[in-house]
Design a protein around this nucleic acid. Structure first.
Lengths: 336, 336
DNA sequence: TTGAAAGCGTTACCAG
DNA sequence: CTGGTAACGCTTTCAA
C-alpha cells in the first residue's frame, strides 16, 4: 500500500492492457466509455500516481523549470520568484530556484545540474549570465527566457522593464515638483545605466543637467543599503547639494534616507528621494518611499507564459516583452 | 552534438561495456586504472552528462527536495528558503519551492505533485500542514522534516526555535529596562502562543502580570502590518497605556511602530517595542528594531542536514533540534 | 477500440 | 576485473 502502484497494477485491476491505461491517462486514441470508466475507477481505487520520471524518460516533459536568480533573500527577487512560481503552478510546472550570488561559477554549476535533471527550460532573472552561456543552451535547443534584465543586441526571449522610461518618468516627476539639482545613486549595471539615460534625457528636455559627476557603484555584491548610504553621503557634503536624489533601487534609496537622517536632514522636507522597484519594504520604511514600480506580478506571469509558448513551439522567432513602470507616490518626496 | 550522448556512446568511445562505464561513474566494483582513464577520457570528450531521470527510475535518488512554505514573498521565509537552498546545493540537492498561502488545498496539490516527481523528501517550513497529511507521508516512508514550526506531541523530525525561551528573554529584557506595563501583539498560532507563555512566566517571576487582556490576531492571512497596527492602536487608547509592546514578529512590530507614530507617540521615547525574527527589514526600519533573533541560517542548515541524515538511514528514531533565540538590541527600546 | 512489444538511459546481478 | 542482460515505469507504433 505504498508508492509502488504502477501502471501495470492499474491495468490488471481494470482488466485492460497498460497501453490502454496510458491512453486514457493521456486522453489519446479512442477509448470506449466503459473501459475508460473502469480504468479511472481502478486508478482511484489503487490511488495511482503516474511516475513523472518514467514518462519524462520517454521524451515527455519533466514539468519542471529552472529559475536562476542572484539572491532569493533579496525582496525584489523573492517577490519575482513568487509570481513566477504562482503562474508556473497554475500551468502545472514546478520551479527549482537557484541563487547565483552573481557568481559565474555557481551559475555554471546550477545550469549543468539542472540540465542533468532534464528541466524543461530555464528562466534567468538577471544576474551574471554570460551571453555565451545562453547561446550554448540555445544551441542545445533548451528553451530559455530572460526576465528583469535585458541583453541589448542579442536575440533572446525576454520580458523586461522599460528602464529608460522608468528613469524618464522619475525625472519628469521630480522636475515637475520643482527640483533642479538632482543626484543619482545607482549600481554599475545595464539596467541602472538605462534608467540614468532616461533620467538624463528628461532633464535635458527641461534644459537641466547634472551638477555633479555620477559615481556608479561598482561592487555589486556589497550591501546595497551601505552602498546607498555612502553615495548619498557624498552628495550631502557638497556645498551646492542636490534637493533630490534618484536611487535606482529601493534598498539604495533607503540607504540614502539613512544618510540624510545622519546628516541631520529630513526627508522629504530637506531632500526628496525617489526609489525604484516598489518592493514591499518601500511602504514599510519611514518615510514611505516614493518609487518607480516594477510590475513584478505581471513580469513573473509574462515570463512564465513566454517560456510555455516556447515549449509549445508557438514561436521560433524571438520576442521581447517590454513592460512599463509606473510612479508610486508616497512620502519621501515633496515640492520645493 | 546535443544532449543526446548516452552511456552507450561513452561505452563505445571507450571500447568497454555500459556496465563498466556505469561502474566507473558510481565508483563501484574494482576497475583497472587504464580502463577507468579511458572511460573518463571518453566522457570528457563526448561531454557526457548522466541522465538523472534514468538512474532515479532505477531507484536512485532524484537529488531533489520539496520545500513547502506559506509564502516565498515573506522575508522570513525567503531568507529561510535561501539558507536551505544553500546547504542543499552544497550537498548536491536541488530545492523546489512551493508557497501554500496557508491553504490546505494548495498544500495537498503540491504534495501530490512532488510525489509524482519523486522528490527524495519534503521539508515543511511552517504553514498549514494537517498532522494527518504528515502521517500519511511517513506511512509511505517518504522522508520529511519540519522547520520553524513545532508539533507538540507528534513524533517527527524537526528543527525549531525555542519559542518559549524567546518570549522569556524578551520579557526579561524589557523588565530589566524597567517596564512593568507591557502589551502583546501576536497571531493566534502555536509558536506565538508559546512565546507569550514564556513571556508571561518571566513576568510572573518578577511579580508582574498583564494589565490588559491579550487579543490574538485570528486572521493569519491578512497583512501582518495592518494587524499589528490595529492591535497596537487599541493598546494606545487605554488610559493606562503600556510603556512597552512585545510583538511576535517583525512585521507586527513595525505595524505597532506605525500605530504609535500615528498617535503622536515616539518610539522608543514614549513607548518601547520589541519584535521577533530579526529579518532583514528589522535593521532597515526607523527606528531600527530591537528584536529576538531567530538563527535563520542555522535553521536552514540544520533541517537540511537532518533530512539528509534520514536519507542515509542514520536515524529511525525522531529528533527534535531546538535552537536558541538571542536578543538583538537596536533602537526601538529604552529604559523607563 | 484494444493490446503486444519495442524502446528511453540507467543500475544491478551474475557470469566469465 | 569486465560484460551480458534483466529490470525500472512509461509512451508509442503497429497489428489485431
Amino acid at each position: 500500500m505504498g508508492l509502488k502502484v504502477t501502471i501495470y497494477d492499474v491495468a490488471k485491476e481494470a482488466k485492460v492492457s497498460i497501453a490502454t491505461v496510458s491512453n486514457v491517462i493521456n486522453k489519446k486514441g479512442r477509448i470506449g466509455e466503459k473501459t475508460r470508466r473502469r480504468v479511472y475507477d481502478a486508478m482511484e481505487k489503487l490511488n495511482y500516481e503516474p511516475n513523472v520520471l518514467a514518462s519524462a524518460l520517454m521524451g515527455k516533459q519533466t514539468k519542471t523549470i529552472g529559475l536562476l536568480i542572484p539572491d532569493l533573500a533579496n525582496p525584489f527577487f523573492s517577490e519575482l520568484a513568487r509570481s513566477i512560481e504562482d503562474r508556473g503552478h497554475e500551468l502545472g510546472y514546478s520551479i527549482v530556484i537557484c541563487s547565483t550570488d552573481y557568481q559565474e561559477e555557481k551559475e555554471n554549476k546550477y545550469i549543468s545540474l539542472l540540465k542533468q535533471k532534464r528541466v524543461d527550460g530555464f528562466i534567468f532573472a538577471s544576474g551574471f549570465e554570460k551571453q555565451s552561456r545562453l547561446e550554448e543552451l540555445m544551441q542545445e535547443d533548451i528553451p530559455i527566457a530572460i526576465v528583469a534584465r535585458d541583453y541589448p543586441n542579442f536575440a533572446v526571449n525576454a520580458v523586461a522593464l522599460d528602464d529608460y522610461m522608468g528613469g524618464y518618468l522619475a525625472a519628469d516627476y521630480l522636475i515637475k515638483l520643482g527640483h533642479k539639482k538632482i543626484g543619482i545613486v545607482a549600481l554599475d549595471v545595464y539596467s541602472n545605466r538605462e534608467r540614468i539615460r532616461g533620467f538624463k534625457d528628461a532633464m535635458s528636455e527641461h534644459g537641466l543637467k547634472f551638477i555633479h559627476d555620477i559615481e556608479l557603484i561598482e561592487d555589486i555584491k556589497q550591501s546595497h543599503l551601505d552602498a546607498g548610504r555612502n553615495v548619498a553621503k557624498k552628495y550631502l557634503q557638497y556645498d551646492d547639494k542636490p534637493t533630490a536624489l534618484f536611487a535606482c533601487n529601493d534598498l539604495l534609496a533607503i540607504g540614502a534616507i539613512q544618510a540624510a537622517r545622519r546628516s541631520g536632514l529630513y526627508v522629504p522636507n530637506d531632500i526628496s528621494i525617489v526609489g525604484f522597484d516598489n518592493t514591499s519594504i518601500a511602504s514599510i520604511v519611514d518615510p514611505p518611499l516614493t518609487t518607480m514600480s516594477q510590475p513584478i506580478q505581471l513580469m513573473g506571469r509574462e515570463v512564465m507564459d513566454l517560456i510555455i509558448s516556447i515549449f509549445k513551439g508557438e514561436r521560433d522567432d524571438h520576442v521581447r516583452v517590454t513592460l512599463a513602470p509606473t510612479l508610486v507616490e508616497r512620502d519621501s518626496t515633496r515640492t520645493i
